[in-house]
Simulated assay, not measured.
Amino acid sequence: MAGLPGITAGYLIRGDRPCLVETGTSTSAPVVRDALHHLGVGPGDLATVVVTHIHLDHAGGVGDIARAFPNAEIVVHEKGARHLADPSRLMASARMVWGDKLDVLFGDLSPTDAHRIRALGDTGSIDLGGGRRLDSHYSPGHAKHHVGLIDSQTGDLYVGDAAGVYLPATDDLRPATPPPDFDLDTALASLALFRSLDPARLLFSHYGPVGAVPQALERSAEELRVWTALTRQARADGLDLDHAVAMVRDRTRSRYRAQQSDDASAEVAETLSGVASNVAGIMHWLDRTEKP
């Protein structure tokens, strides 16, 4: 993503019905396609493509991957399905937020034929073959079209962005609270749901597997509370968004090794979980739910 490795993960579940979880951006789609071919998954072999939500770093490559693998069913929560069939509104909104950076970071989401899309409700199941399932659980808070996915055989839980952003190089775990959908109470409830599923591992879309499940989920909840408390304080002090971002960046710097580094890890952290985006999302939630 954006020329940086180790940012966004796509996961191949091997089996009787091979399944790809997350496509990454459209600019990453050729990398994903070639990797699948290298692993022996030809154009007619992929049975399912499922995305945890429709943000462009997770689902931006859906249209391209759907064309490359014409037999694959595309699975998404029902609140995101129409945007995969007709991404014009989603792309217009993204262009307003990102401007010219959109082309570098994400590229364009191509439409997917509506008849190939299966929309999930608050729970659902994806057949992986041989009695194995990928069970979907609605987990908003980060986004209203977000699901977590747990493998019935391995216990692996694909957490999308609902548990935040994990940076394996520095062992940092940062929140992901962008506007307009972030809701603290809903986000914490999603983490509680994940705990109740008793997963064996958390598979982060950003980036990679984490085996210490209870500790990681508790840390995710702590990060949400810390960032929300700091943003609430900035709002109570009457700071505008730019000054609130500066304050939160300064007061969270010591929490993350990546932010104390001079190498590319700081750039990766900001690309995946930008302070400005996180604070704006929390501010938006506070403006909806709390009086100034």
Score class of each variant (00 low, 15 high):
residue 244 A to I: 01
residue 246 A to K: 01
residue 266 A to D: 10
residue 276 A to D: 13
residue 270 E to H: 09
residue 248 V to K: 01
residue 261 S to N: 14
residue 240 D to P: 07
residue 258 A to E: 04
residue 248 V to R: 04
residue 247 M to V: 02
residue 250 D to W: 02
residue 254 S to D: 14
residue 259 Q to S: 10
residue 249 R to H: 11
residue 278 N to C: 10
residue 244 A to D: 00
residue 256 Y to F: 15
residue 274 G to M: 01
residue 272 L to K: 02
residue 263 D to F: 11
residue 267 E to V: 12
residue 249 R to K: 12
residue 277 S to T: 10
residue 261 S to K: 11
residue 252 T to S: 10
residue 256 Y to W: 12
residue 260 Q to N: 15
residue 267 E to K: 10
residue 273 S to P: 07
residue 271 T to I: 15
residue 258 A to S: 15
residue 279 V to K: 02
residue 271 T to D: 04
residue 253 R to Y: 05
residue 241 L to R: 10
residue 246 A to Q: 08
residue 260 Q to I: 10
residue 269 A to T: 02
residue 272 L to G: 01
residue 269 A to V: 05
residue 279 V to E: 05
residue 257 R to T: 15
residue 278 N to D: 13
residue 277 S to K: 03
residue 241 L to M: 12
residue 257 R to I: 13
residue 257 R to E: 15
residue 267 E to Q: 11
residue 273 S to Y: 04
residue 267 E to C: 07
residue 250 D to G: 12
residue 254 S to V: 10
residue 256 Y to L: 11
residue 265 S to T: 15
residue 268 V to P: 00
residue 261 S to Y: 05
residue 277 S to W: 05
residue 271 T to L: 15
residue 255 R to P: 03
residue 279 V to P: 02
residue 272 L to F: 02
residue 253 R to K: 14
residue 251 R to N: 10
residue 272 L to P: 02
residue 241 L to A: 13
residue 256 Y to I: 08
residue 266 A to M: 08
residue 258 A to V: 01
residue 251 R to E: 12
residue 268 V to A: 13
residue 248 V to S: 04
residue 277 S to N: 08
residue 250 D to S: 12
residue 267 E to W: 07
residue 244 A to M: 05
residue 265 S to H: 07
residue 247 M to T: 04
residue 263 D to V: 11
residue 250 D to P: 00
residue 272 L to V: 06
residue 267 E to Y: 08
residue 266 A to K: 08
residue 256 Y to A: 09
residue 271 T to Y: 13
residue 272 L to E: 04
residue 248 V to D: 03
residue 245 V to T: 03
residue 278 N to W: 00
residue 273 S to V: 02
residue 268 V to G: 04
residue 242 D to T: 14
residue 243 H to N: 14
residue 250 D to F: 03
residue 279 V to Y: 01
residue 264 A to N: 08
residue 252 T to I: 07
residue 246 A to R: 03
residue 240 D to C: 14
residue 256 Y to E: 09
residue 276 A to L: 09
residue 272 L to Q: 04
residue 264 A to H: 10
residue 260 Q to C: 13
residue 277 S to I: 07
residue 275 V to E: 13
residue 279 V to S: 02
residue 272 L to C: 08
residue 244 A to E: 01
